[in-house]
């Protein structure tokens, strides 16, 4: 056994030491906990009493409600973590373009936007006769917190109206346009 130890020595303790140091560094690398995407889904209530020109099927109504909720979940997660890829599942078109631009700006500036979602009352207004588009007005109750780095620079509770355009995809409805409404449009 002595020889083995001696031969280990010949192999180069300094090499082993450097490998060990590298290892220690790696173990302390800042990858301890991956950011977990929030799985809580906001509450969405859909009222389709005033929809025109076509009535909404029960299954479609359920799907639209579910997918709009998922879209808001993803929007909140994407804004908080400044990850545009989180928008891929439920956003498309102009809505996605705008949000992707904003998240790119967030990445540049270090600003993070956190939404605490207290629910959405959604009224369906327009459903195209061919079933290709649906327009909704969403009365969203949100808490918004804005941070620059670790510092909170702004916080508010707000009732905000959104004009939403959704279009169907292969297995879900996508948010194609999501625009805030002013009181004097």
């Amino acid at each position: 056994m002595t020889l083995i130890a001696a031969d280990f020595g010949k192999l180069g303790r300094s090499t082993l030491m450097s490998v060990a140091s590298m290892l220690a560094l790696a173990i302390l690398a800042p990858v301890l906990v991956a950011a977990l995407r929030a799985d809580s889904i906001p509450a969405v209530k859909l009222n389709a009493d005033q929809i025109a020109p076509r009535a909404i099927e029960e299954l479609t109504g359920r799907n639209v409600t579910r997918d709009y909720a998922y879209a808001w979940r993803d929007l909140a997660a994407a804004s908080e973590s400044a990850r545009a890829d989180l928008l891929n599942d439920y956003f498309t078109g102009f809505a996605k373009d705008k949000l992707v631009r904003r998240i790119a700006d967030q990445q540049k500036t270090g600003v993070r936007i956190r939404y605490i979602d207290h629910g959405h009352n959604v009224r369906a207004l327009f459903y195209a006769p061919d079933g290709g588009e649906m327009q909704l007005v969403d009365n969203a109750q949100l808490e918004i917190e804005i941070r620059d780095g670790s510092k909170i620079i702004y916080r508010e509770k707000v009732n905000q109206q959104y004009l939403v355009l959704m279009t169907p995809g292969a297995d879900r409805w996508f948010v194609r346009s999501l625009d805030q409404l002013a009181d004097h449009p």
Binding site: D97, K98, L99, R101, R102, D105, Q106, K108, T109, G110, V111, I113, I146, D148, Q160, L178, D179, Q180, A182
Partner: peptide
Amino acid sequence: LGPGSVVKRTVELGTEVKVTGAEIAAAGR
């Protein structure tokens, strides 16, 4: 901070902050 943009810059007080058209391209609050 708007629906499609986030701007952050250092400003000298007493001067005007210039906001470009591209920075408020998205309608909304």
